[in-house]
């Protein structure tokens, strides 16, 4: 249920909740995958984002997000200069991502030898939907601490993963299950949590035989 605080707010950088604030929140989600500014970033803009790139400040909003700035930081308007100061290399490209929301961006961030890829859509009023994290299809709001797991599609996989989370006293808000391929027995789960996930819990999850890959993302 919507809060009146979302009706009379939020405090944000203009001019557009979907093309500025939403874009910034998707980039902030990508920033949270490393938790520190990346060495380089590529933004692939789909649909309306290609048109609002300058006129709605989508470009500066995306750069501000990847610098880790707060969504109402007045310095968003000079985010390009701040990225230069932080030594972040950035590039923008147009792309056709197919049948996705018109306001969608694919972000690839690199740091040393590792990289992450996020695809997210800005769905209105500053709300976002992350539809892919490191190639795992999902539907995430970014409002909760989020755990993304690719796992073996075998009996008991879900139970063993959930048990590690629950025995560490962390409450689960929502779980999304997805079978990626029945033949190769690969599934994914996106778990939104009520509390932040300590890093040792993430490490225990990664050590499970059924877990092929696990990533944790802080809320935006």
């Amino acid at each position: 249920m919507v809060s009146i605080l979302d009706i009379i707010g939020p405090s944000m950088i203009g001019p557009s909740s979907s093309h500025t604030l939403g874009a910034m929140r998707i980039a902030k989600f990508a920033y949270n995958l490393f938790g520190t500014p990346p060495d380089s970033v590529s933004f692939y803009l789909h649909g309306s984002f290609k048109e609002t790139y300058i006129g709605h400040g989508t470009k500066l909003a995306l750069i501000a997000g990847i610098c880790g700035m707060e969504t109402d930081d007045p310095n968003v308007a000079k985010a390009d200069k701040i990225a230069d100061e932080l030594g972040i290399k950035y590039e923008f490209r147009g792309i056709d991502l197919g049948d996705v929301h018109p306001n969608t961006v694919k972000i690839v961030i690199k740091k040393s030898n590792s990289f992450h890829e996020v695809i997210g859509s800005s769905i209105g009023a500053g709300r976002v939907k992350i539809i892919s994290i490191d190639s795992i299809v999902c539907s995430v709001s970014g409002d909760f601490p989020t755990l993304v797991i690719e796992n073996e599609d075998v009996p008991g996989a879900l139970e063993s993963i959930i048990r590690i989370i629950s025995t560490n006293g962390i409450n689960i808000a929502q779980v999304n299950l997805n079978r990626l391929s029945k033949g190769s027995k690969i599934a994914s789960m996106v778990i939104e949590l009520d509390d932040e996930l300590p890093s040792f819990v993430l490490e225990s999850l990664k050590m499970l035989n059924v877990v092929r890959f696990a990533t944790y993302v802080k809320p935006i």
């Binding site: 009379i8 707010g9 944000m12 203009g14 001019p15 909740s17 400040g57 109402d72 007045p74 009023a125």
Partner: peptide, 21 residues
Amino acid sequence: ESNASMGRIVACPTAGSSGVM
């Protein structure tokens, strides 16, 4: 006008109408 120049505003209820309140 501040909104149109990437100033900080309160989206009340939206950014486009943020001058009224």
